[in-house]
Amino acid sequence: MTTRPNPAKPAPISDSGGALRVVAEGVPSAVRPDLLLDDGRRPVAWLHIAAPGRGITPSAHSWCQCGRDLFAAGQARALALITDHAQHRTSCPLRNSQEGKAA
C-alpha cells in the first residue's frame, strides 16, 4: 500500500486557518478594492516618451482632449516638448476652469 496521495482525488482541506483557497491549491484569494468606483477624475492630457537606447533617436508625443497633438523627434526637441507639455497642464482650458477669471 502506498502513502502518496492519488492525483485523481482532490487534496483534503485542512482547518489550519490562513488564506482561503478559491482558484487552485496554493493560490490564495484576497479581497481587493473595487476598481470600478468612480472618483470623478478623467485623464485629459497624455505624454508618451520613447528613449529606446544608444544610437536611436528619442521622441516624445503630447496630446490632449482640447485638440493638442504634438510630436517631436531628437533629444533637444523631445526635451522641449516635455517642458511644453508640463506648461500646457497649467493653461489647458479643460484642466483649468475659466469661470470667474478676468478676460
Results as ranks from 00 to 15, higher is better:
residue 12 P to H: 03
residue 18 G to E: 05
residue 86 A to G: 10
residue 43 P to V: 05
residue 2 T to N: 06
residue 48 H to C: 12
residue 92 C to M: 11
residue 92 C to F: 03
residue 58 P to A: 02
residue 70 L to S: 06
residue 8 A to V: 07
residue 50 A to G: 07
residue 34 D to R: 00
residue 42 R to Q: 09
residue 64 C to H: 03
residue 34 D to L: 02
residue 4 R to T: 15
residue 100 G to C: 01
residue 39 D to V: 12
residue 88 H to Q: 06
residue 27 V to C: 06
residue 102 A to E: 10
residue 86 A to V: 09
residue 65 Q to T: 08
residue 23 V to E: 11
residue 17 G to I: 04
residue 63 W to Y: 12
residue 39 D to Q: 09
residue 63 W to D: 09
residue 76 A to N: 10
residue 20 L to T: 15
residue 21 R to S: 15
residue 6 N to E: 11
residue 8 A to P: 01
residue 59 S to G: 02
residue 58 P to C: 00
residue 35 L to K: 07
residue 46 W to K: 10
residue 31 V to Q: 13
residue 101 K to Q: 12
residue 32 R to S: 04
residue 10 P to V: 06
residue 89 R to A: 13
residue 23 V to Y: 15
residue 96 N to R: 14
residue 74 G to V: 02
residue 96 N to C: 04
residue 46 W to E: 08
residue 101 K to C: 03
residue 36 L to H: 13
residue 76 A to Q: 14
residue 18 G to K: 10
residue 55 G to I: 01
residue 61 H to T: 05
residue 87 Q to P: 01
residue 4 R to M: 09
residue 49 I to Y: 00
residue 80 A to E: 09
residue 77 R to P: 02
residue 36 L to Q: 11
residue 70 L to A: 13
residue 68 R to W: 05
residue 19 A to G: 06
residue 26 G to T: 07
residue 80 A to P: 03
residue 88 H to M: 05
residue 89 R to S: 10
residue 24 A to D: 15
residue 32 R to K: 15
residue 20 L to S: 14
residue 34 D to P: 01
residue 95 R to L: 14
residue 84 D to V: 06
residue 66 C to V: 08
residue 18 G to F: 04
residue 25 E to P: 04
residue 60 A to N: 00
residue 93 P to I: 08
residue 25 E to W: 10
residue 3 T to N: 11
residue 74 G to R: 03
residue 60 A to D: 03
residue 31 V to M: 03
residue 70 L to W: 05
residue 8 A to H: 11
residue 82 I to V: 15
residue 91 S to Y: 06
residue 87 Q to M: 09
residue 7 P to C: 05
residue 14 S to E: 12
residue 28 P to H: 11
residue 82 I to C: 14
residue 66 C to W: 05
residue 43 P to S: 14
residue 53 G to Q: 02
residue 19 A to P: 03
residue 25 E to C: 07
residue 19 A to R: 11
residue 15 D to L: 14
residue 76 A to F: 04
residue 49 I to S: 03
residue 46 W to S: 13
residue 52 P to V: 00
residue 30 A to Q: 12
residue 83 T to A: 15
residue 90 T to A: 10
residue 103 A to F: 04
residue 9 K to F: 07
residue 99 E to A: 11
residue 90 T to Q: 14
residue 7 P to K: 11
residue 79 L to R: 13
residue 57 T to N: 01
residue 72 A to Q: 02
residue 54 R to A: 14
residue 51 A to F: 05
residue 103 A to G: 09
residue 7 P to Q: 07
residue 49 I to K: 05
residue 86 A to W: 10
residue 1 M to I: 15
residue 7 P to F: 05
residue 5 P to W: 00
residue 52 P to M: 01
residue 83 T to N: 12
residue 30 A to K: 14
residue 78 A to L: 01
residue 22 V to C: 07
residue 35 L to R: 12
residue 46 W to R: 08
residue 56 I to M: 10
residue 62 S to G: 10
residue 28 P to C: 13
residue 82 I to K: 14
residue 30 A to L: 07
residue 36 L to D: 14
